[in-house]
C-alpha cells in the first residue's frame, strides 16, 4: 500500500520532470563528500539540490540545502528538495530512511567506499554513468589515473617513516588512527607506514602506546590543532614530550576534507602528503586541474 502510493507520487514527480528525466537526473541530492566532489568535477554542480554535512568542497556546495549528517538523513527532508536522484555513499543511512526513499520511487544510486585510489577512479565512472555524463567521466578518470601514476612512480618506497595520525573528536582524549582507516590508507600511498597496527578504527591516545608506536611524524588536522589549543599544545601532550626527548619527532597538519576525502583530488592529496613524509624526495609537479579550485 505504502509502496504503491509513494511510487505513484514518484511517477507524478517524474512526469513533471520531463520525458527523459529517468535517464538524466536534473535534480541531484548527494550524501557523501567524495561523491559531491565528483558531481561538481563532472560539470554537474548546478544540478545539485542538496548535500550532506560532510560535503564541504568546493565552497559552493556549502550554500546548498543541508541534508544533515550522512548517517542520519531524513526522508521527508530529502523529498522536499524534489530530487530525481539520490547519490549515496555506502556510508549513508539510516537504512530505514533509505528504504522509505526507495519505496517512494526515488532513484538511489549507491557508490562503493574503499580506501584506495583505484576505487576513486571506479566511482567516477559509476557517478558519470548515473548522472548522464559518461564522456566527462572518462576524461576525469583518465586525468586522475595519469596523475596517480606519476605520483605513485615518484614516491620513495625504501625506509618508510612511521606516521601517527591524531584526530580530536569533541572533548575527551584525542583519537589515533589504526588499521582500515582512510588515514592509514593515505599514509601507505604516500610512502609511509601507519605507526599503529594493533587495532582497527580510531582509539583514544594512550601515552605509552604512542611511545611504543615510535612515530617519526605526527600528522594531525587543522581542527584538532585548534581544539587542543595550538600546535605547541599538541607537541606538549605527555606522549609526544616523552618521545621527543629520545628521538627526532616531526609534526604536520593537514586538511582532512582534502587529504582523507578520497575524491577526485586524490592524486594531488597523495603528492601533498608524500611531500610532508619525504621532504627531500623529488616529486613531480602535477597539472593544475580545474576540479582543484575551491571557488568553482
Amino acid at each position: 500500500m505504502r509502496g504503491v502510493l509513494l511510487a505513484a507520487f514518484a511517477a507524478a514527480a517524474l512526469q513533471a520532470g520531463g520525458a527523459n528525466a529517468a535517464e538524466t537526473p536534473q535534480r541531484i541530492a548527494v550524501a557523501g563528500s567524495g561523491l559531491t566532489e565528483i558531481v561538481v568535477a563532472l560539470g554537474a554542480g548546478d544540478r545539485l539540490v542538496g548535500v550532506d554535512t560532510t560535503s564541504l568542497f568546493p565552497e559552493r556546495v556549502r550554500r546548498l540545502p543541508q541534508l544533515g549528517y550522512l548517517r542520519a538523513i531524513a526522508a521527508e527532508g530529502v523529498l522536499s528538495l524534489k530530487p530525481d536522484m539520490l547519490l549515496a555513499s555506502e556510508d549513508a543511512g539510516p537504512p530505514a530512511v533509505l528504504a522509505q526513499l526507495a519505496s517512494a520511487g526515488l532513484r538511489i544510486v549507491r557508490a562503493q567506499e574503499g580506501y584506495d585510489p583505484e576505487a576513486v577512479v571506479r566511482r567516477v565512472a559509476h557517478v558519470g554513468e548515473a548522472i548522464g555524463r559518461p564522456e566527462a567521466a572518462r576524461a576525469l578518470e583518465g586525468e586522475i589515473a595519469a596523475d596517480l601514476a606519476r605520483v605513485h612512480a615518484a614516491v620513495p618506497r625504501g625506509n618508510p617513516p612511521r606516521v601517527l595520525f591524531l584526530l580530536a573528536a569533541g572533548a575527551g582524549a584525542p583519537l589515533v588512527a589504526g588499521r582500515e582507516t582512510a588515514a592509514a590508507a593515505m599514509i601507505e600511498y604516500a610512502g609511509g607506514r601507519n605507526a599503529i597496527d594493533g587495532y582497527r578504527g580510531y582509539k583514544p591516545l594512550s601515552a605509552e602506546g604512542a611511545v611504543e608506536a615510535a612515530p617519526d611524524l605526527v600528522l594531525t588536522t587543522d581542527t584538532t590543532v585548534r581544539a587542543l589549543g595550538g600546535m605547541d599544545a599538541v607537541r606538549a601532550l605527555p606522549a609526544f614530550g616523552t618521545l621527543a626527548a629520545t628521538k627526532k619527532l616531526r609534526f604536520a597538519e593537514i586538511d582532512p576534507v582534502y587529504m582523507l576525502g578520497f575524491g577526485p583530488r586524490i592524486a594531488h592529496a597523495v603528492r601533498e602528503l608524500a611531500r610532508i613524509l619525504h621532504p627531500d624526495a623529488a616529486l613531480p609537479e602535477l597539472p593544475e586541474r580545474a576540479w582543484l579550485k575551491a571557488d568553482r
Binding site: A72, A75, A96, V97, A99, Q100, G201
Partner: peptide, 25 residues
C-alpha cells in the same frame, strides 16, 4: 562503543540521541 569501528560508532552515537526517523507502519 570502545571496540566498535568508526562507522558503528557514528551509528551508536546517533541512535543514543533518540529519534523517530524511519517511522513506518
Amino acid at each position: 562503543v570502545y571496540s566498535s569501528d568508526d562507522r558503528q560508532l557514528r551509528d551508536i552515537t546517533v541512535w543514543l540521541l533518540g529519534s523517530l526517523s524511519g517511522a513506518s507502519w
